[in-house]
């Protein structure tokens, strides 16, 4: 029998994979992909809780996360294109203007 814990653990594992991407990749595009993974991992958790507690609130949150993710992609991709036009690369090692 699949319980809530199964889903939550899956959610945690996917979240961990997303984190690996965020920490490891140096390409902005792939960083954005990793962010999508993080958001999806959380969505699974919300949907699972919604189901096992019989409460629609979890799904509502998932909807809004989807909306936020969509906006984020729109803006993020736009910014990335601008950056690429200026510098011709998406490697974040090249963007260190905040060096202290």
């Amino acid at each position: 029998m699949i319980t809530l814990s199964h889903y939550l653990i899956l959610s945690a594992i996917l979240f961990g994979i997303g984190l690996v991407g965020v920490y490891r990749r140096k390409n902005l595009l792939l960083l954005l992909f990793s962010t999508e993974i993080l958001l999806n991992a959380v969505n699974i958790g919300f949907a699972a809780i919604s189901k096992f507690y019989g409460d629609l609130t979890g799904q509502m949150f998932a909807f809004f996360i989807v909306a936020v993710a969509a906006s984020e992609v729109a803006v993020g991709l736009g910014l990335m294109i601008v950056w690429y036009k200026r510098r011709g690369t998406l490697d974040i090692d090249t963007m260190q203007s905040m060096h202290g």
Binding site: A70, S71, A74, V75, L77, G78, L79, V82
Partner: peptide
Amino acid sequence: VAMIAGIILA
């Protein structure tokens, strides 16, 4: 807003 921002930026 995100849509407009994306269009303008890109």
